[in-house]
Design a protein around this nucleic acid. Structure first.
Length: 793
DNA sequence: GAGCACTGC
């Protein structure tokens, strides 16, 4: 796109321009080189001038048009002094038509000036102007997420550099800032629109799944989830719509961020005009710098209060008991201030809440002069939003005017470590554990394991105590364990995941060799092999490891490859409407609610939807019942409540279903159903599912309804929640869950004939062993003798 | 006869 200048730092437009001007006159003769493609060509404030007069010979906006606050700005040669002058000036240069700043803008600007990052604006511009890539370390409270993208806007002037896209629309070359979470992308965009005194969704916007608050013609600064940018990259390998990309929260090392880093490392070589800023919170700066060819570093201090850390003298044998004891100790002995306790999961948290509440009530009753009232609040993601909001309620009032103050205790999972910030926390209790995802490529199973956290995590947790004033952190492990046992950083997600999806995405991104791709942390080759193998069996990849036409479409669906495959083949089985529903239901959290106190009622409610042939069909029943019985929101939430179903999950399923349906339509995949009266109605559905999940099948083995997985011979039991009312010879399962026992969850009966018919290579008797081999060979023999074999495929 | 750490498309 941009000039093919190959200097080290990539972007040398200004100097190049000067040189050009020295060689040829700046006349508007058609033969003159004219401005390079990325130079401003559309400055709305200079619209009264013909394009050739809008910029001086060195590319600066023409100073003669004195009303333009950006007069004299050379893209990417802008200094802190220039930017500050405009920020503190009278006219907003980023508004659709230049207009005076509002009073609110000035009020906010005063606060922005206090942010640590503001003080380093000059240093930022020096590094930004001179380098294509830079790494930024900004601790909590530095203001990097809101300010840096704005700084870039003053330098890139994206709103003055509109270009026609492939769709013929004149659009700004945007600045993107990625976030790992949707709420962050949304709330930061809203804040920055206010700070810039422009409208959200017009000049500054955000894009997340299910919601695009941007305007193709006017948005020049876009906050988005990292996954969303990755999706865009799949169809635009050079990310041409962007002039600068800022990867925020890179230290979290989400799968999407890691892939984007690898991809962008390649893109910056192809696009010398693209600037990249990688932002992270402390610590691994050197690793990022090294990965990005020794990119320069800008370090900005945070703005938090000191946190005093305490360790236990001896290891604690029972961290749950120790955590409870510590909370009670703090409540009795420490000054006013709320407490945040980190535990690993829902059950543990509810248990701890009960115990702490009981002890604290006893204490307050027996020592009203020593202990104030204590409010205990649980926090985890599956909690309904209304209950999550309770963490923001104030601590209880003191009971008597001179009595001891009340206190709030929040008992939380890791969600409070990154996603949610609670003000007023002064004390943190950190037992040092969290549930972490691990992937075992040998048996192809992802599971959750309670594991020790990393030092980085522990520091993040401690930091939560110092957001409003100095705080204390009580670590329930010894200082020696801290030093010797905790690893520095948590393993990035890419090392802990099944990569089937990722490998498909990478291919779609145009990455040819998945093994030599420049990962910041390369995954185990076995994990990549497992993914390639699966995608090959699903016919997404051919035998040479290239994407097939089917694989190309599969990558467009926001689904696991197995689900995408079953959806794409479903029209052939005349059941795409039903498979759409099942895919959506399998993509959202469990729709069945089962409160501890009402297990029987909940099970009875579920039985109303049960389909005897399997859980996939039960999910279909639930969705149909939901759509039939819930014409509006009010009835829906009541109906869900009465039927022990999660309204939230069902709404999500509805949302996902529409998105999947749109993707189906985009690829001309028919939306069809077999008539319900037709005896093949359910068979067709089950066959389509089998086309996606034939690798996840178990065969009955031994007594007592136990099964053995076909590929890895793992002994498994159907999950007790299943609605399957018999024990067929073959079942297909959606998930393998490793808890107290090996369970297969969400299962449906399949026929061995289908497996051989739809996945002949996989089920070829020569690949099989024992009983299954005999069964498959038997079917093959019969088929060979019978009339024409193979109805489909 | 039982569990969903947390995100994301």
């Amino acid at each position: 796109m941009a000039g093919a200048d190959s200097q080290k730092n990539g972007d040398n437009r200004p100097s190049k321009r000067t040189k050009m001007d020295g060689e040829s006159s700046a006349s508007a003769s058609p033969a003159a080189p004219g401005p390079p493609p990325t130079m401003p060509t559309e400055n709305p404030y200079l619209a009264h001038l013909p394009p050739s007069e809008r910029f001086t010979s060195n590319g600066a906006a023409n100073a003669a048009s004195s009303s333009d606050p950006l007069a004299g700005f050379v893209p990417r040669q802008v200094t802190g002094k220039q930017a500050r002058a405009v920020m503190e000036g009278d006219v907003n240069p980023f508004a659709a038509t230049p207009r005076p700043y509002s009073q609110k803008y000035r009020d906010i600007l005063a606060k922005r000036k206090e942010l640590p990052v503001y003080a380093q604006m000059d240093e930022f511009y020096e590094k930004f102007n001179q380098n294509q890539i830079m790494v930024m370390i900004g601790e909590t409270g530095s203001g990097k997420t809101t300010q840096i993208p704005q700084f870039v806007a003053y330098s890139d002037l994206p709103h003055t550099r509109k270009e026609k896209g492939a769709d013929g629309i004149l659009a700004p070359r945007m600045i993107a800032c990625t976030q790992p979470r949707r709420v962050a992308a949304m709330s930061v965009a809203k804040r920055v629109a206010e700070e810039m005194d422009v409208s959200l969704g017009k000049e500054v916007g955000y894009t997340i799944r299910f919601e695009d608050a941007t305007d193709r013609r006017t948005t020049f600064l876009k906050y988005m989830t990292d996954g969303m940018l990755l999706r865009e990259a799949m169809n635009d390998h050079n990310l041409e719509r962007y002039s600068a990309i800022i990867l925020d929260e890179a230290h979290e090392r989400t799968l999407a961020t890691d892939i984007l880093m690898g991809l962008l490392k390649e893109v910056v070589q192809r696009r010398s005009d693209l600037k990249l800023i990688v932002m992270s919170a402390t610590l691994d700066a050197l690793k990022f710098q090294k990965y990005f060819n020794d990119a320069p570093l800008l370090k900005v201090p945070g703005r938090t209060f000191p946190v005093e850390t305490f360790y236990t003298p001896e290891p604690e044998p029972d961290y749950l008991e120790a955590a409870i004891r510590t909370v009670i100790m703090i409540h009795q002995a420490e000054d006013e201030g709320d407490i945040l306790v980190f535990l690993t999961g829902e059950e543990e948290i509810e248990d701890a809440c009960k115990k702490i509440k009981a002890e604290a009530d006893d204490l307050a009753a027996s020592n009203p002069d020593l202990c104030g009232p204590l409010k205990v609040v649980p926090l985890y993601s599956s909690l309904p939003p209304a209950q999550q909001q309770r963490i923001f309620e104030p601590a209880p009032e003191r009971i008597t005017p001179n009595g001891p103050p009340g206190r709030k205790v929040v008992i939380s999972t890791n969600i409070a470590e990154t996603s949610l910030t609670i003000d007023g926390i002064v004390y943190v209790v950190d037992p040092g554990f969290s549930k972490q995802k691990v992937y075992n490529p040998r048996i192809r199973v992802e599971s959750l394991l309670v594991s020790p956290i990393s030092k980085a995590s522990a520091q993040q947790r401690a930091g939560r105590a110092g957001r409003t004033r100095p705080g204390k952190c009580f670590r329930l492990y010894t200082e020696k364990d801290w030093a010797n046992e905790l690893i520095e950083q948590s393993y990035p997600e890419i090392l802990r995941s099944n990569l089937a999806n990722t490998v498909l995405e990478l291919k779609k991104l145009g990455i040819d060799n998945l093994v030599t791709f420049d990962y910041m942390d390369p995954p185990a080759p076995e994990t990549i092999m497992r993914a390639l193998e699966l995608l090959n069996y699903l016919a997404a990849f051919d035998d040479d490891g290239n994407l097939t036409p089917l694989g190309t479409i599969m990558a467009e669906f926001p689904l696991d490859p197995q689900l995408a495959k079953m959806l794409i083949v479903s029209p052939e089985f005349k059941c795409s409407n039903e498979i759409l529903t099942i895919a959506a239901m399998l993509s959202v959290p469990n729709v069945f609610v089962r409160p501890n106190s009402q297990k029987q009622q909940a099970d009875a409610a579920r039985a109303e939807f049960a389909h005897p042939d399997g859980d996939h069909l039960t999910l279909l029943n639930v969705y149909h019942a939901y759509k039939t019985n819930c014409p509006d929101n009010k009835t829906a939430s009541d109906w869900c409540w009465q039927n022990y179903l999660s309204y939230r999950a069902l709404m999500q399923a509805d949302n996902v279903r529409s998105q999947l349906q749109r993707t189906m339509e985009r690829f001309d995949l028919d939306l069809v159903s077999t008539p319900f009266e037709d005896k093949r109605y359910y068979t067709n559905i089950r066959q389509a599912i089998a086309c996606g999940f034939f690798m996840q099948v178990a065969h009955k083995s031994g007594g007592k309804g136990t099964y053995q997985t076909i590929k890895d011979n793992q002994l498994v039991s159907p999950h007790p929640s299943t609605t399957l009312d018999h024990t067929p010879e073959f079942v297909l399962y959606h998930e393998f869950v490793l808890t107290t026992r090996n369970y297969i969850r969400t299962i449906t009966e399949v026929r061995p004939e289908w497996l051989l018919e739809f996945a002949p290579a996989y089920y070829d008797p020569s690949n099989m062993e024992g009983e299954v081999k005999r069964i498959m060979a038997g079917i093959q023999g019969k088929k060979a003798k019978g009339p024409a074999a193979g109805r489909r495929k």
